[in-house]
């Protein structure tokens, strides 16, 4: 764990090998609910990354103080504090986006990705690795959100970050920015992810056999 390589691994595993959305299938509510445009996805990803990062920092610092019996409650209170903070921050800085995300900002509290990382990693590791892990998972989560958001906005609105891409002859697939589009997009992305992961696995097993 102390080699530079080990640190890099801690960060990178959240991006692909243990990606919270595509592999663990955690934190589904924000993943599907607010990804109807790229900009909303980005805001949600950033908010989650912020909460995850600072909760991990605090939990890791306090890991010797928190009694085992009340640890989950403690994590929840820590997470809820940072979520309240992010809620107020967004309301002050970008009121439009805050309005569109609505109650889903508050619902970051029950995002299982965040609680899961506290329990699985931050509670038993020193501050450095805990922060790297949180950053990796947070970036992996944001990346997945952005991918879904880009697909949905492109197909459902013909634009990207509110800039029209396809021109006026494009007939938008309204369904993609509505709830069903969220399910479809994630379903198909998972399909692609599975296919690629499987192909990689077969290739590496051939290499090890040879």
């Amino acid at each position: 764990m102390n080699t530079p390589d080990g640190h890099w691994d801690v960060f990178v595993k959240g991006l692909w090998k243990e990606n919270p959305v595509f592999v663990a299938v955690l934190g589904m509510c924000p993943t599907l609910a607010v990804t109807n445009t790229a900009i909303n996805s980005l805001a949600m990803g950033a908010a989650t990354l912020f909460v995850l990062f600072f909760s991990s920092l605090l939990v890791s610092l306090l890991r010797k103080v928190i009694a085992k019996q009340v640890r989950i409650t403690t994590y929840i209170v820590i997470i809820a504090t940072f979520v309240s903070l992010v809620d107020m921050l967004l309301a002050a800085l970008v009121p439009d986006i805050h309005k569109e995300l609505g109650a889903f900002i508050a619902l970051i509290v029950v995002n299982c990705v965040i609680l899961g990382r506290q329990e699985a990693f931050a509670a038993s590791n020193r501050v450095g690795p805990a922060l790297l892990d949180a950053a990796g998972m947070g970036v992996g989560f944001s990346m997945a959100l952005l991918m879904i958001g880009v697909v949905r906005e492109l197909l459902g609105n013909g634009s990207l970050f509110d800039i029209p891409v396809f021109g006026s002859s494009f007939e938008p697939w309204i369904v993609m920015i509505l709830p069903p589009g969220g399910f479809f997009t994630l379903g198909f992305l998972l399909l692609i992810f599975n296919t690629v992961a499987r192909r990689r696995a077969t290739r590496s097993s051939i290499v090890t056999k040879a």
Partner: peptide, 12 residues
């Protein structure tokens, strides 16, 4: 999960 999600999309 992939199949469940697509089924859910149709239900939705």
């Amino acid at each position: 999960t992939a199949l469940s999600l697509i089924v859910a999309g149709i239900l939705s």
